[in-house]
Amino acid sequence: MIIGDLKNLVPYKAMSNNMKLAIEYLEEIDMTSMVDGKHPVVGDDIFVVMSTYFTREHDESKYEIHHNYIDIQYLIKGEEIIFCNEAHEMEREGDYNPKNDKLNFKDQLGAVSIHMKPGMAAIFYPNDAHKACCKVHNKIQEVRKLLVKVKMED
């Protein structure tokens, strides 16, 4: 898990070509004019999902991991809590879904909470179980977020 402002993600471009392209895309895109939905960047290697939604109770979200993609979650508007935990320490909930590249986990103690604010980005790797969209200070609010899916390179 990596957390920081967009400007602080520059060193992580060196991790892979896909990560470099994804971060450069985030630096250059005009997010104010992007409509909600899925948008290709580099075929299936990098795509983005723009979404606008309301935060929810912590128990209404589920922890998840992805085997094939790294998540970069960039908050544009509003605030939310994202919980994160080590996947190997958690109990699975259901089977891995290869179509959605998702495996869910049951809640458990030991999670790290990230208070996301506009301009912040969080990067989640395959071992980083994460649970997003959770309300801050017991207050439901509208959030606008860009999710960048970055395919893992061999």
Rank of each mutant, 00 (worst) to 15 (best):
M120R: 06
Q141W: 02
P118A: 07
A122H: 03
S113E: 15
V112T: 15
I114C: 14
K139F: 03
P126L: 12
A129Y: 04
I123N: 07
Y125S: 10
A132H: 05
M116V: 03
V112D: 15
G119E: 04
P126Q: 10
F124N: 08
G119V: 04
P118C: 10
C134Q: 11
I140K: 03
N138M: 09
L109Q: 14
N127A: 12
F124Y: 14
M116E: 06
D128G: 01
K117Q: 14
S113V: 13
A129C: 07
A111M: 11
A129N: 07
P118K: 09
L146M: 11
C133P: 00
L109P: 00
N138E: 15
N138A: 14
R144Y: 01
P118D: 04
N138C: 08
P118W: 06
H137Y: 13
K145M: 00
A121F: 05
I114K: 13
C133I: 01
Q141I: 10
K117Y: 09
H137Q: 14
V112C: 14
K145V: 01
V136W: 04
C134M: 14
V136N: 04
K139S: 08
G119T: 04
L146I: 09
L146R: 03
A122I: 05
K139C: 08
V136D: 06
V143A: 01
L146Y: 00
C133E: 02
A122N: 13
A129K: 04
A129W: 03
Q141R: 06
E142T: 11
A122T: 10
I140L: 12
K139I: 05
A122C: 13
N138Q: 13
H115A: 14
K135L: 12
L146E: 00
C134G: 09
N127M: 14
Y125V: 05
C133N: 02
K135I: 05
D128C: 01
H115C: 06
G119Y: 06
G110K: 12
I140Q: 06
C133W: 01
